[in-house]
């Protein structure tokens, strides 16, 4: 992960491909990698989310992709605009790491280091056991989320 200033848009997929539906972000990143417009960098982020602040500094926009906790509708895709609003409080409690996604975004906001446009796509997961594959409904959502993100990147490119 380096050289973020050469790219105008950062797409960062957060998750562990070896933890079931936590791997939905990396799965979407794999689909996006060969299809994103010039100037868009696709990055996988396994653990150290603070590094994202260094990565998106200099980028005009960033799109984050992550799995969200089970809430009865696996595969549901939500897009949240983080440019001016915070992640919901319940989401902030989900990481056992010292700095999760919500903390990283709010730290960057306090430092004035958020990209002008920042959105997160959340795909609701169902199972997160070690070594299992994506659950069927989450696997189905991969294509749909990929297309939605490509459409957003096209709209950004069109200004």
């Amino acid at each position: 992960m380096s050289g973020g200033d050469r790219y105008s848009v950062l797409v960062a997929a957060i998750g562990n491909p070896d933890r079931g539906d936590d791997g939905v972000g990396p799965a979407i990143a794999n689909r996006l990698r060969d299809r994103v417009p010039t100037g868009v960098r696709v990055l996988e982020c396994g653990g150290d989310l603070l590094e994202l602040i260094n990565e998106w500094t200099g980028s005009a926009a960033a799109i984050l992709i992550d799995a969200s906790d089970p809430a009865g509708d696996p595969g549901r895709i939500r897009r949240l605009d983080l440019s001016s609003s915070r992640l919901p409080a319940d989401f902030a409690q989900n990481s056992t790491h010292a700095f999760g996604l919500a903390e990283t975004v709010e730290l960057a906001r306090a430092l004035g280091q958020l990209p002008a446009r920042l959105a997160v796509y959340l795909v609701e997961g169902e199972r997160f056991e070690i070594g299992v594959s994506l659950s069927p409904r989450v696997a189905e959502a991969v294509g749909k989320a990929t297309e939605a993100i490509l459409a957003e990147l096209s709209r950004m490119a069109a200004g």
Partner: peptide
């Protein structure tokens, strides 16, 4: 937490991020 501290001590937090990098 660091988020609250960053508003008043931004330079210290930026230094830490640069060190981590």
């Amino acid at each position: 937490d660091a988020m609250a501290m960053a508003r008043d001590h931004g330079d210290a937090v930026r230094r830490a991020l640069a060190l981590k990098k």
